[in-house]
């Protein structure tokens, strides 16, 4: 005999997607919504006041420590999800798909580069690493690369000089390196100091979030590359890059449907933590983390925890539900 019935997964999925659409719409449309209070404008007569539903002015979700309307801040805080966390997740997914897909498809021996490409790469690395000789050495290597490129079609021994690029080892090394430092510590170290411009913060979040999608795509690619349709594409005479891009990669990216919502949840959590600590973004940019952070200064402000914490919790749960149903 059962006393309760579990909600059906489809209903939960619809609920989750409905909430996420609401958050997305709020974030996109916040500047045009007919809100009773403007964002960032303090109501100096009502600082850190609990929700007022019956008395004017009606701050439906109360005010924060500086007298800003919590509802307005919450809606504009959703904007951070849309303009920061979502693009950063897309960036991480794209980078992860390309890196993991390449490593899985070509492995350590599949990608062979000519002498000119090696010299070009060496010149770039020399210059970036500021090795002795600096620009002169890099320029010399660049000249050698140009010479090798010119000689390749003319001299057979130059065209035969190709070496495999250990893509998979490089990929594993990068993943291990990033995994060695906790993500929050890494971001705090890089974002400490003056607030970062939006573009830089987006790149930073993307740079720390790409390993998980990449790992999933690589694992899938290891299976996909041995499937008959990939062999068939090779047999038809398509170049390895065409096989990889048109046939293998779309199939290898299937795990992303489950991974991307979780990555987004992780990045929303990370962005909220940064805002909570007051790192990375200017203080006047509305965000859920900033609202939560004010509880440190006004511990009795339960409405800040309830509103910002509730919105954050629901969003993370919704993303997890979407990820589960996409599995």
């Amino acid at each position: 005999m059962t006393f309760t019935s579990r909600p059906r997964p489809a209903a939960l999925r619809r609920l989750a997607i409905g909430w996420l659409v609401m958050v997305g719409a709020a974030g996109l449309l916040a500047p045009w919504l007919p809100l009773p209070f403007a964002v960032g404008v303090p109501d100096l007569l009502h600082l850190a006041e609990p929700p007022a539903w019956t008395t004017a002015p009606r701050h439906w979700l109360g005010t924060d420590l500086f007298g800003r309307d919590v509802l307005t801040e919450l809606l504009f805080g959703a904007r951070q999800v849309v303009v920061l966390s979502l693009p950063a997740t897309a960036l991480a997914a794209l980078a992860g798909a390309l890196a993991g897909g390449s490593a899985g498809f070509w492995g350590n021996r599949g990608c062979r580069l000519p002498l000119a490409a090696w010299l070009l790469g060496l010149a770039g690395a020399w210059w970036l690493a500021v090795l002795p000789g600096g620009g002169h050495a890099a320029a010399g290597l660049l000249g050698a690369a140009a010479l090798a490129g010119w000689a390749a079609p003319r001299l057979p021994w130059v065209s035969r000089a190709q070496w495999p690029l250990p893509l998979d080892s490089l990929f594993q090394a990068a993943i291990t390196l990033l995994g060695a430092v906790p993500r929050l510590v890494l971001v705090l170290t890089l974002a400490a100091g003056p607030p970062l411009p939006m573009g830089q913060l987006l790149l930073l979040l993307g740079a720390v979030a790409w390993p998980e999608p990449a790992r999933q795509v690589r694992a899938q690619m290891l299976q996909v590359r041995t499937l008959p349709f990939v062999e068939a594409a090779r047999a038809v005479g398509l170049s390895p890059t065409q096989v990889w891009l048109r046939h293998a990669l779309p199939h290898a990216c299937r795990p992303l449907r489950a991974v991307v919502p979780l990555s987004l949840a992780g990045l929303i959590g990370l962005e909220t933590t940064l805002a909570f600590l007051g790192v990375g973004r200017p203080p006047d940019v509305a965000s859920w983390g900033q609202l939560l952070g004010m509880v440190r200064q006004e511990p009795s402000a339960w409405w800040l925890v309830a509103s910002a914490g509730g919105a954050l919790l629901l969003t993370l749960l919704a993303l997890q539900q979407v990820a589960r149903s996409n599995r």
Binding site: G40, V41, P42, L44, L47, L65, F66, R68, D284, Q297
Partner: peptide
Amino acid sequence: PTFATIALQFRA
């Protein structure tokens, strides 16, 4: 927070 309140009022 007093300084931040002043700054936000002026900014608004």
